[in-house]
Amino acid sequence: MNWGGFGTVDGWLAIIGLAIGTFAIRYSFIGLLAGKKLPPRFERALQLAVPAIFAALVVPLILFQGNQLNLTMRWPHAVAAIITGIYAWWRGGMLLSLVIGMASLHALLWFFA
């Protein structure tokens, strides 16, 4: 039976640092702004920042192999992501969108293997 170990001191410092820092980031504006009315320009900027940040997060996850852009390997992923996006926009529904996306990825990989 593996009861598990506790790792290094540096490891625990890293855990504490990440946990406290991340909570501070999460609480930042919730704590500062809750109940206050935001200027409309700021609110608009946030509406634009959300799609921008998700795209910046997602596109490398789709197109990168390891730490590099690799379109020869990843184009089926790009196509599958576009199909998923179209379906989600048209119908919505997370589970079915995921199933359709993964099915198209494997169909493409199988067909063009």
Binding site: L18, T22, I25, F29, I30, A34, L38, V50, I53
Partner: peptide
């Protein structure tokens, strides 16, 4: 630690966006 936190900085945007919703 710093790199991990920079990755999470996007959550400050979420925090700001959610704040007016939970007045």
């Amino acid at each position: 630690i710093l790199s991990g936190l920079v990755v999470n900085l996007r959550m400050a945007v979420y925090s700001a966006a959610i704040a007016p919703r939970i007045a």
